[in-house]
């Protein structure tokens, strides 16, 4: 792969994330905001309904076949650390990307005016509106960031394993478990939770080839029973 090609591909990917971000802002402002103003339960129903609609649209457009992104020889390329241990380039790249994205999010949320407005609106929407924050716009921006991050995560998932239109809910459980293990509201906790879940699944699979997912769930249940607030308590929560 030559460098010019890589840069062009990168720019195109940036366009994809921007597209998802704009899409996220629109979905938030046009669909989810309306339901938020009714009740949290309505939001749950509306987003659940949206997930069903999206899965079925994908089914119609892309069939039920399993796909994965073709990365050529890169997918199996790895570096040998010791004779026993080798690390694949793709998983490594994904992990580094996750750390970079989380660092960026952390900086954005803690240092910028918009980040501050997002945290304030999450604390108390009404109080932030009377402090002069346009909370609908802030929610839209938060959704845009979430959608762009999801686009990135989707690419990472598609590059490292296969996917089909109904693959979402199973992944959602893993994401949910990672957040709970790490502690709701803590970005680095989510990364730690993801790592713990991943290690549990890999070690579980080593013990019994079909036991990986089960081991992950057991670790999740153990955390829920012993430390329900998660490993890292969200900052300054009351």
């Amino acid at each position: 792969m030559n460098w010019a090609n890589a840069i062009v591909q990168g720019i195109l990917l940036g366009g994809l994330y921007a597209l998802f971000a704009v899409f996220g802002y629109g979905v938030q402002r046009l669909i989810i905001q309306k339901s938020l103003e009714v009740s949290p339960l309505t939001t749950l129903l509306v987003t659940f309904g949206l997930s069903v609609v999206i899965q079925n649209l994908l089914l119609v457009a892309a069939s039920a076949d399993s796909h994965s992104f073709d990365l050529g020889s890169l997918i199996s390329a790895s570096m040998r650390v010791t004779p026993e241990l080798s690390i694949g380039y793709v998983p490594l790249l994904i992990f580094v990307t996750a750390v970079v994205v989380l660092s960026g999010l952390q900086l954005f949320l803690s240092r910028t005016a918009m980040g501050r407005a997002i945290r304030a609106s999450a604390d108390d929407q009404e109080a932030s509106s009377i402090a002069g924050v346009d909370t609908r716009h802030v929610f839209g921006i938060a959704a845009a960031i979430a959608f762009a991050t999801v686009a990135l995560a989707g690419l990472a998932l598609g590059s490292s394993s296969s996917f089909d239109p109904s693959a979402g809910p199973a992944r959602l459980i893993f994401a949910f478990e990672a957040v709970i293990i790490g502690g709701v509201g803590s970005l680095w906790g989510t990364l730690a939770g993801g790592v713990i879940l991943g290690v549990a699944q890999a070690v579980g699979a080593q013990i019994d080839p079909s036991g990986g997912v089960l081991a992950g769930h057991l670790v999740f249940l153990a955390v829920l029973a012993l430390r329900p607030q998660g490993l890292i308590r969200a900052r300054l929560a009351t």
């Binding site: 005016a113 501050r116 407005a117 945290r119 304030a120 999450a122 604390d123 108390d124 109080a127 932030s128 402090a131 002069g132 924050v133 346009d134 969200a234 900052r235 300054l236 929560a237 009351t238």
Partner: peptide, 15 residues
């Protein structure tokens, strides 16, 4: 805002 510091609370007022 409980998760914001004193100064951050003030700065939200500039929104």
């Amino acid at each position: 805002f409980p998760s914001l510091s004193v100064e951050e609370n003030l700065l939200v007022g500039q929104a």
